[in-house]
Amino acid sequence: MANDPSVAHDPPPYGAEVFAFSHPAQTERLDSLGDLCDPATTADLARWDLPAGARCLEIGAGTGSLALWLADRCPDGEVTATDTDLRFLSRLRHPALRVLRHDVRTQGFPPGSFDLIVARSVLCHVPARTELPARMVSWLRPGGRLYIEDPSFFPAASSPDPVVRRLGDAVTTTLAASLGSDVAAWARSFPAPLGGLGLAELGMRVHCPTLTATNAAGRAWALSVADLLPAMTRAGALSEAGGTRALAHISRPGFVDIAHAMIAMWGVRPLTRHTEPRYAG
């Protein structure tokens, strides 16, 4: 029965086979994504005051650049940085930083644990993504904020460049087939997934970075596609030769396009209960 192809099995988690933590270029790929995303994410988070001694949680902290930024901002508090594999986080040192092995799919935290919860490029890769925001809200203290940010490849789908369109479609298709990811419609639906959770100050932000051969987006795309290429070939989304040509295309001098969008949504657990979500813009 275990090998019966008619029996449905959950896809392997992010980091096990696809974007494997053991891949020799994984640190560089994650660092490139941090260089791409950190400026917009930290600009959002810097807008909001945190209480003295704030307790913060970053789910899926990767190589820890955002967790370290939070720790610098909350030196008298505590920042818990989690991931399913800690090889990139265990090297970090900061008096306000705690590193914890944690799988958000199956593990939780006590109610009212945190003043801020951040999950970036996490929920899009979890098949049960729609169930998680409600659980995460329960981990917030009254007045605490939930911040979720995920990619959507809709800019690639509308590119005038057929190679970029094909590459974006191959990434979207392959991640869906291999991980159960949604990097198309999920983030594009924001902030609706927070509606009905009793949150105040609902808001969202969209960032569409420029894609060139040499910037952070270009490095992240090149490293991600190279990592995904075997899975793309298995899924029939892009041949090895087609992937090699696409990588050469986006690496050529003078290449420019729009990368995937990074879309963030947030909301605050109110100090008193209310029934209607309030969008703050």
Results as ranks from 00 to 15, higher is better:
T214M: 08
M232G: 00
V137T: 12
T82F: 03
H274E: 07
D10W: 10
V126Y: 00
A43M: 11
L100A: 08
Q107T: 08
D44P: 02
A235R: 05
Y14L: 13
L202F: 02
G77R: 04
S22Q: 06
G254V: 12
L89Q: 08
G112V: 00
A170T: 01
A187W: 04
R188D: 07
A280Q: 13
D227S: 07
H260F: 11
R47V: 02
D103Y: 03
V206K: 05
A25T: 15
R93H: 13
P133A: 02
V122Y: 03
T272S: 14
G243T: 01
R91G: 07
V171G: 00
A134Q: 10
C208P: 03
A259P: 01
Q26R: 14
V268L: 00
V118F: 00
A46C: 11
H125N: 13
Q107R: 05
L140V: 12
R105A: 14
A71L: 10
R245C: 11
F190V: 05
G242F: 04
I263N: 06
A264N: 03
S90R: 15
A246R: 05
T214E: 15
R141S: 01
T272H: 12
L97N: 01
H274Y: 02
L100Y: 06
T130V: 09
H207P: 05
D44T: 14
H9Y: 09
M265A: 10
R129I: 04
P133T: 04
N215G: 01
D4Y: 12
G236E: 15
T233V: 14
A134P: 10
A170G: 00
R29P: 11
A177V: 05
G242C: 05
P51A: 03
H125F: 14
I263Y: 02
W48I: 12
D169N: 11
D150E: 14
D83G: 06
F255S: 09
M204A: 10
A119Y: 12
I117P: 06
T233H: 12
P11V: 07
R129V: 07
A216D: 13
S90E: 15
G281S: 10
T173H: 11
A54V: 10
A184T: 13
T84V: 14
V79R: 04
S152T: 14
S65I: 06
A246G: 09
